[in-house]
Write a protein that binds this DNA or RNA. Structure first.
Lengths: 243, 243
DNA sequence: CGAGGGTTTGAAGTGCATCAAATAGTGTGG
DNA sequence: CCACACTATTTGATGCACTTCAAACCCTCG
């Protein structure tokens, strides 16, 4: 392990919303027991139901967390990128991963020992409070997603997804967005078919004056977009369904 | 407050999955600061966005937790009965209720001080761990619900709802079920219209040999029902989407 | 018995899925 | 740098699931 990677790892751990609340000893320990590695595109590197010994931080690239039904369909749990951790949920599931994880593209990860985290949560009140905050936030996002599925149609859900990508959420100015991963994945993240996504996006485009060129989208009228999406929803953007 | 109610309250607190992990001083304190009261049918007794000072335990009856969109539709978050607590989520939302609460029928509640709970979580590691377990479980249920919305159709979602009501989940015998609240509410809990519910239930009835008489349902073939619902899902019943 | 809410049924419409095929875009080896 | 292969995306045609609107039915309760 080069000094550079060590620094990168430490930097990532110290900046992670959850881990940074750990004690110095804890940080030290997991840094020492950490490991970075590369995952090739489309590689599934752990499976749901599998015994969990590690959790992960994304250094670079995107991971897809998902579950598969008996008859072969999949439901996307989340799609994460740099700085986000995952796999830690196994702590509350008898050390069994509650979802599978696949590299959306070639990707770099930090692997960290789950037992150390478990121990830190159990012994450091600061850490367990941080964990509470973190899970609670996730739970809220899930509630928002469920609300979206219930109350919003396909174009509105797409619009909401775009709003979350705005570089300056608070500003009303025209803004450029780049879709973070391919449209097929976006569509399944939003619980619809690729064809539906395509058609819904062009409907949205007409409705709120987007400019779409491949994965690049310009939102000319943020207010119009906000109104279009959030009127079906319990909260107006920015609504907390973030990160 | 009669002695009887005091005992009832204490009994409920000591048996609550979350609160029972509190310290004796905490239990004492919240018992002293507790209050039971009756809520008439259809009464909305707190609103989303409202400042939260209390959380609640259901003594008797059913509460509907929900959010309302700008243009007047509602999304059901949960429907709870005896022994369940709610409103505690405000702790992680700057003491603001993240949903509204309405009595589905005339109902009895225990009201408890939220700040005491906050304090206990912050000072008693046992309690914060219990809270972690509790929220984590809720988060999982939300993930399951989202999966169901994505992968199951209306009859399957209803079937899944019925499975959770089985008095002997592990047994394969024919079993009787009573719908816990009216069909309109069940349907919106499952994210569908009452008409859809009605039609989907009769489809399910043909498909897996149910006997339906108003709100009473006999599942004659548990295995068939399980297969029908869970083949669309990532886990076979009993699947953890419970309580 | 009659009023009112819950539930079912019917008819028609809408949105999304599915299947099939065309098109655009990307990376590869020559 | 081009042609090819392969994948992502779009478009068209059609079907199905769920919704919507309307009306009938049923049940309970005063």
């Amino acid at each position: 392990m080069t000094n550079l990677t060590t620094n990168t790892i430490e930097h990532n751990i110290r900046n992670n919303m959850l881990l940074k609340h750990g004690s110095p000893q804890f940080i030290d320990k997991i840094c020492k027991n950490s490991h970075t590695f590369q995952v090739p595109k489309n590689h599934i590197f752990f499976l749901r139901e599998q015994q969990a010994e590690h959790f992960y931080i994304v250094l670079h690239g995107w991971v897809k967390l998902f579950r598969e039904s008996i008859d072969g369909n999949q439901a996307i749990i989340d799609v994460l990128t740099s700085g986000h951790i995952f796999g830690e949920g196994a702590l509350f599931e008898n050390m069994i991963f509650p979802y599978s994880a696949e590299a959306v593209e070639s990707m770099q990860l930090i692997r960290l020992p789950l037992l150390s985290l478990k121990n830190e949560i159990e012994t450091n009140p600061k850490m367990s409070l941080a964990m509470l905050k973190s899970i609670s936030k996730h739970k809220n996002q899930k509630n928002m997603e469920l609300e979206h599925r219930t109350l919003q149609n396909a174009p509105q859900r797409i619009g909401c997804f775009l709003l979350k990508l705005l570089p300056k959420p608070e500003s009303k100015e025209a803004q450029d967005i780049q879709l973070p991963y391919d449209k097929t994945l976006v569509s399944s993240r939003l619980g619809m078919q690729p064809e539906t996504f395509s058609r819904a996006l062009s409907k949205l485009k007409k409705e709120v004056n987007l400019e779409v060129k491949g994965g690049s989208i310009t939102v000319t009228n943020v207010e119009k977009l906000t109104l279009f999406c959030c009127s079906a929803c319990s909260t107006i953007f920015p609504c907390g369904d973030h990160e």
